[in-house]
Each structure stands twice: as structure tokens, then as C-alpha cells.
């Protein structure tokens, strides 16, 4: 930007490279550290395809897939949150505003309920549950909830306030139904739901990473297309339209991208939606007036926060690891409060 000379003391040059370096560091740390102590040399040989079968299995089949899944999900949650906060002009927006996590919770609950009773009425058959189908089931629910809220708000002209109010109302209903089902269900299978609900990277496989990858790629691929409209969607509708933006079309497109990113991520790792709330704030704080930095910083920090959060959860909990959703919420709240102190 030629007309926008960088102010002195603004960390605009080094902040993105620093954040990228942080991704690499957290990735390496997450690969090398874990509850099973594997010497660094064995980790390296496992990565190159040699070494003991046990080390190879832990690194290649357990740690790497969960790290990659976490990175993809983190980027998706953070990006979804930024898009939603930007277009609704609501700093407290996260993917649950569009009912994505509540809708996903409901369909995952329904899915488990029905498959269990259709397949096997024995209430202790946890291992036979079709867990591989949870990501698509959750994603469909998330998208459906987002779609319902969109249609309700669309009828009422898509004002950000309407979207927020519709989102809260629909989200609350879906959540209540899901909790009601879970409460009335009461059996060993509840553990699967609870683990999924808290947002977890436990036992995530390459299948989860592969499930997410197309959404991550498509979401990032959409960015050049929505980048300029996103700038204009920060204004209210009258101003954005006066500047030549087809407000309705572009708003809907960005909303769709946001919901698809969030719903697929929720399906794969459960509602770690706090990442979507907190990371954009962190990115905005670091970028200051350099708005063009906010978008890349959000994506990169989303990967970092989830990777580090999961590592902390793995190391802190011992064999009974602390779910990533709990870690991000506990770590995120102080960050959020500190950032909010800047808001008048």
C-alpha cells in the first residue's frame, strides 16, 4: 500500500515470519514430545521409515495424523471465526453463532442413537459403533443448522443483528434437543458423545485428516475470491453497496465458506469453537492497523493454538489426556479477557 506508510514501531515485517516459525516449532515439538517417551533419534528414524515398529506406529499412526488433523481443524475454525466476525460485525461471533456446533451435536447424537438401536440393542457395544461416520454426520448437521438460520435471516434482509438473534434462538433449540436426547439415553455410549462434545483430537487418524483436507484447500482457495468483498463487508450494507458491492451475494458466499469450514471441522474433531472466537482477536491485536496481516495471521495462529493446546493436553493429563477443547477454553479465557481490556 503506497498511501499507507507503515508507522514506526509496528511489527508488520517480522510478525508473519515469526508466526510461521511458531507453526514449525509447535509441529516439531508435537511430533517429538508425548506421553510415550521416544528418544529423538528413534523419532527421526521412524519418520524416515526405519526404526522400531513400536516407534513407527506411535509416530506415523498416532501422533502425525492427530497433529495434521489438529492443524487443519485449527486453521478452519480460526478462519471461519474471522469471516463470521467480520461480516456480522460482531466481535463475539464464532461458528456456534450460526448453529454449526449445536446442529452437529444434534446429528451426531441422533446418528449414534439410531445406528445403535438399528444395529445392536446391546448397550455395551461401544466398539462396534460406526465412529468413522461421525465427521460427515456432524458436518451435515452443522451445515443444516447454518442453512436454517440463513434462511430465517434472509427472509428478514440478512442484517447482522437478525442473524445473531436467529442463530442464538435456533442454536439453543438444537442444543436443548441434543442434551435432552443424551440425558434420556443414559448408557455406556454416552462417553463417545461426551468425548466428541468436549472437542478432542484423541484417536484421530489419517482418515480424519483426509476428510478435512479438501475443505481446508477449498476454503483457502476461496480467499482470493472473497478478499476484497470481505474488506467491504466490514461496512454496513448501505455503505458497502454504495461502493459497488453486491452485498447479499457476497455476504451469502462468505457465510457459506465460513459454515463449511466450521461444520467440517466440528464433524472431525468436535466443537473446539473457542479457537474460532479467540484466534481472530489475537491476530487483530498483533496486526494492529495492518489489516492485510489479520487474515494470514489468523490462519497461521489457528494451526499453532490447536497444535500447542493439544500438546499441553497430552502432556498434562498423562494417559487420561485432557481434551483440546478444554485446554483451549482454559488457555483462551485469560487471553480473551486481556484483549477485551483494550476495548472501550
Amino acid at each position: 500500500m503506497s498511501a499507507n506508510a507503515p508507522a514506526i514501531g509496528q511489527p508488520s515485517r517480522w510478525i508473519l515470519p515469526a508466526a510461521l516459525a511458531l507453526v514449525l516449532i509447535s509441529f516439531v515439538a508435537a511430533v517429538f514430545l508425548g506421553i510415550v517417551d521416544i528418544p529423538a533419534r528413534d523419532v527421526l528414524s521412524a519418520l524416515t521409515g526405519t526404526g522400531s515398529t513400536e516407534a513407527r506406529s506411535i509416530i506415523l499412526d498416532i501422533r502425525l495424523p492427530r497433529i495434521v488433523t489438529g492443524i487443519l481443524a485449527g486453521m478452519q475454525f480460526a478462519l471461519a471465526g474471522l469471516l463470521l466476525q467480520t461480516i456480522t460485525r460482531n466481535p463475539l461471533a464464532d461458528p456456534s453463532l450460526m448453529g454449526v456446533s449445536q446442529g452437529a451435536t444434534l446429528t451426531v447424537t441422533l446418528f449414534l442413537l439410531f445406528t445403535v438401536y438399528l444395529a445392536n440393542p446391546d448397550s455395551y457395544s461401544v466398539n462396534e459403533l460406526p465412529i468413522a461416520w461421525l465427521p460427515p454426520a456432524g458436518m451435515i448437521g452443522g451445515m443444516a443448522a447454518g442453512g436454517i438460520i440463513y434462511l430465517l435471516a434472509f427472509r428478514l434482509d440478512l442484517s447482522p443483528l437478525r442473524i445473531t438473534l436467529c442463530g442464538i434462538a435456533i442454536g439453543a433449540v438444537l442444543h436443548a434437543i441434543a442434551i435432552g436426547l443424551i440425558a434420556g439415553w443414559g448408557s455406556a455410549r454416552i462417553e463417545i458423545i461426551l468425548e466428541w462434545l468436549s472437542g478432542s483430537l484423541y484417536a484421530r487418524t489419517w482418515d480424519h485428516a483426509l476428510f478435512l483436507l479438501p475443505f481446508t484447500v477449498a476454503g483457502l482457495g476461496m480467499l482470493p475470491l472473497i478478499y476484497r468483498p470481505l474488506n467491504l463487508l466490514r461496512f454496513d450494507a448501505a455503505v458497502a453497496r454504495s461502493f459497488g458491492l453486491s452485498y447479499r451475494r457476497q455476504f451469502s458466499l462468505v457465510l457459506l465458506v465460513s459454515c463449511a469450514l466450521a461444520a467440517s471441522a466440528v464433524g472431525a474433531v468436535g466443537p473446539i469453537v473457542f479457537v474460532g472466537l479467540i484466534v481472530p482477536h489475537l491476530a487483530r491485536f498483533l496486526a494492529g492497523r495492518h489489516f492485510p496481516l489479520v487474515l494470514p495471521l489468523t490462519i497461521v495462529l489457528g494451526a499453532v493454538i490447536v497444535t500447542l493446546g493439544d500438546l499441553v493436553g497430552r502432556l498434562a493429563g498423562g494417559p487420561e489426556e485432557v481434551p483440546i477443547g478444554v485446554v483451549t477454553a482454559l488457555m483462551g479465557v485469560p487471553v480473551m479477557l486481556a484483549l477485551l481490556r483494550r476495548v472501550p
Partner: peptide
Amino acid sequence: FLPQQPVAPDEMTVAQLVRQGRFPHVGL
């Protein structure tokens, strides 16, 4: 068209605001 009391994000700079005026010419 300049509406009455338009609202922009606080952290937006003057240059960034004025640049948006070129959107109809540069497009996506």
C-alpha cells in the same frame, strides 16, 4: 453516495477507507 453518519471499523485507516472507493473500478 455518502449516507448519513456512515460507520467503519475503528482500526481502519484513512487510506484503507479511501481505497475501498476504487472497488467499482478494480473489481474482485
